[in-house]
Simulated scan of single mutants.
Amino acid sequence: ALCDRLLDYDENVRKQVVAVICDVACHSLSSIPVETAKLVAERLRDKSVLVKKYTLERLAEIYNLYCLRCCDGSLNPSEFDWIPGKILRCFYDKDFRSDTIESVLCETLFPTEFSIKDKVKHWVRVFSGFDKVEVKALEKILEQKQRLQQEMQRYLSLKQMHQDGEGPEIQKKVTYCLRIMSRLFADPAKAEENFQILDQLKDVNIWKILSSLIDPKTSFHQACSSRDDLFRILGEKHRLYDFLGTLSLKCSYLLFNKEHVKEFLLEAAIQKSSGNTQYIQSCMNVLVVKYVFP
Rank of each mutant, 00 (worst) to 15 (best):
residue 226 S to D: 09
residue 226 S to W: 01
residue 226 S to G: 06
residue 226 S to R: 06
residue 227 R to C: 06
residue 228 D to S: 11
residue 229 D to T: 09
residue 231 F to I: 07
residue 231 F to M: 06
residue 231 F to V: 06
residue 231 F to S: 04
residue 231 F to Q: 09
residue 232 R to W: 01
residue 232 R to N: 08
residue 232 R to F: 04
residue 232 R to P: 00
residue 232 R to A: 08
residue 233 I to H: 09
residue 234 L to H: 04
residue 235 G to C: 04
residue 236 E to D: 12
residue 236 E to T: 10
residue 236 E to F: 01
residue 236 E to R: 13
residue 237 K to M: 11
residue 239 R to F: 02
residue 240 L to F: 05
residue 241 Y to D: 10
residue 242 D to A: 14
residue 242 D to M: 10
residue 243 F to P: 05
residue 244 L to I: 10
residue 244 L to E: 07
residue 244 L to M: 15
residue 244 L to V: 13
residue 245 G to M: 03
residue 245 G to H: 10
residue 246 T to C: 14
residue 246 T to D: 13
residue 246 T to H: 15
residue 247 L to N: 10
residue 247 L to Y: 13
residue 248 S to F: 06
residue 248 S to G: 14
residue 248 S to K: 08
residue 249 L to F: 12
residue 249 L to C: 13
residue 249 L to V: 07
residue 249 L to E: 11
residue 249 L to T: 13
residue 250 K to C: 11
residue 250 K to R: 15
residue 250 K to I: 14
residue 250 K to M: 09
residue 250 K to A: 11
residue 251 C to L: 15
residue 251 C to W: 09
residue 252 S to A: 14
residue 252 S to E: 11
residue 253 Y to I: 08
residue 253 Y to A: 10
residue 254 L to K: 14
residue 254 L to G: 14
residue 254 L to N: 11
residue 254 L to Q: 12
residue 255 L to S: 13
residue 256 F to G: 14
residue 258 K to C: 07
residue 258 K to H: 11
residue 259 E to Y: 12
residue 259 E to Q: 15
residue 260 H to V: 04
residue 261 V to T: 07
residue 261 V to M: 12
residue 262 K to Y: 08
residue 262 K to A: 11
residue 262 K to V: 15
residue 263 E to M: 04
residue 263 E to K: 08
residue 263 E to T: 07
residue 263 E to F: 06
residue 264 F to E: 06
residue 264 F to K: 04
residue 264 F to C: 10
residue 264 F to T: 08
residue 265 L to R: 13
residue 265 L to M: 07
residue 266 L to V: 04
residue 266 L to D: 10
residue 267 E to F: 04
residue 267 E to T: 15
residue 268 A to G: 06
residue 268 A to V: 01
residue 268 A to R: 13
residue 270 I to V: 09
residue 270 I to F: 07
residue 272 K to A: 10
residue 272 K to N: 08
residue 272 K to Y: 07
residue 273 S to I: 05
residue 273 S to P: 01
residue 273 S to W: 03
residue 274 S to M: 02
residue 274 S to V: 07
residue 275 G to H: 00
residue 276 N to V: 05
residue 276 N to D: 11
residue 276 N to A: 02
residue 277 T to V: 07
residue 278 Q to M: 01
residue 278 Q to I: 03
residue 278 Q to V: 06
residue 279 Y to H: 06
residue 279 Y to W: 04
residue 280 I to W: 00
residue 281 Q to A: 05
residue 281 Q to S: 05
residue 282 S to D: 01
residue 282 S to V: 02
residue 283 C to H: 00
residue 283 C to K: 01
residue 283 C to G: 02
residue 283 C to Q: 00
residue 284 M to G: 00
residue 284 M to D: 02
residue 284 M to S: 05
residue 284 M to R: 03
residue 285 N to K: 03
residue 285 N to L: 01
residue 286 V to F: 00
residue 287 L to F: 00
residue 287 L to Q: 00
residue 288 V to Q: 03
residue 289 V to F: 00
residue 289 V to S: 04
